[in-house]
Design a binder for these strands. Structure first.
Length: 196
DNA sequence: AATGCGATTCTCT
DNA sequence: GAGAATCGCATTT
């Protein structure tokens, strides 16, 4: 059960990789949020709710759960734990690592060199933004992250960093769970969506 | 058949 | 900081 929290923290600093026809896209994970199964009022599977939309949450850990939010953006999650636990970790922000021109083209329609400073900063610093840049869409929902197209790796150069634990974003409806410190980010990263 | 809304982002002010 | 954009799907009539 608490294992999801461990995964959320362990994912920080890892590289999310998407092998696309345009090239290999890589981002360093700098911000995550844990959504912990039926008990968590902020979780799509709260109370054991199981629908067409959240079905993938009930799959085995290591599956990609991607859903459409607000009619126009996607959010990318990593399903955690055993089959049926319906827990997941939302990837909220990345630092661009590889494939900068493709990431930039997907988001802003121009190569990385044509970006303003503000655009560079906002390339992947949010759950909807990183899906656009990394070309992750609903067609990738249910993808096995242990495969060779979308996966997570340990970077070649590991840096030490400090982890900040804080409340999750935009789940005011989650009552006593909205303040749980289940959001994690790398303190000195310049690409975190919201800092305290 | 109709209604309501969300684990967001962008554009003004 | 507020408001709009936009739509699949769960829930209600």
């Amino acid at each position: 059960m608490q294992d999801t929290l461990a995964v959320a923290k362990a994912l920080l600093g890892k590289h999310l990789v998407h092998e696309t026809p345009q090239g290999r896209l890589v981002g360093r994970i700098v911000e995550t949020e844990a959504y912990i199964g039926p008990e968590d009022k902020g979780c799509h599977s709260y109370g054991g709710k199981r629908t067409k939309k959240n079905e993938v949450m009930y799959h085995i850990g290591g599956t990609a759960y991607i859903y459409l939010i607000y009619g126009m953006y996607c959010c990318f999650n990593v399903v955690t734990e055993d089959e049926g636990k319906a827990s997941a970790v939302l990837i909220r922000a990345l630092e661009p690592v590889e494939g900068l021109d493709v990431l930039s083209s997907n988001r802003f329609g121009v190569p990385y060199g044509g970006l303003t400073g503000r655009q560079q900063y906002s390339l992947t610093n949010g759950p909807g933004k990183l899906c656009i840049a990394m070309d992750l869409g609903r067609e990738d929902n249910g993808t096995d992250l242990c495969g060779c197209r979308i996966y997570i790796t340990e970077p070649e150069l590991t840096r030490s960093f400090e982890i900040v634990e804080t409340a999750r974003i935009n789940i005011d409806y989650a009552e006593e769970y909205k303040d749980m410190p289940w959001r994690f980010y790398i303190k000195d990263s310049s690409h975190v969506s919201v800092k305290d």
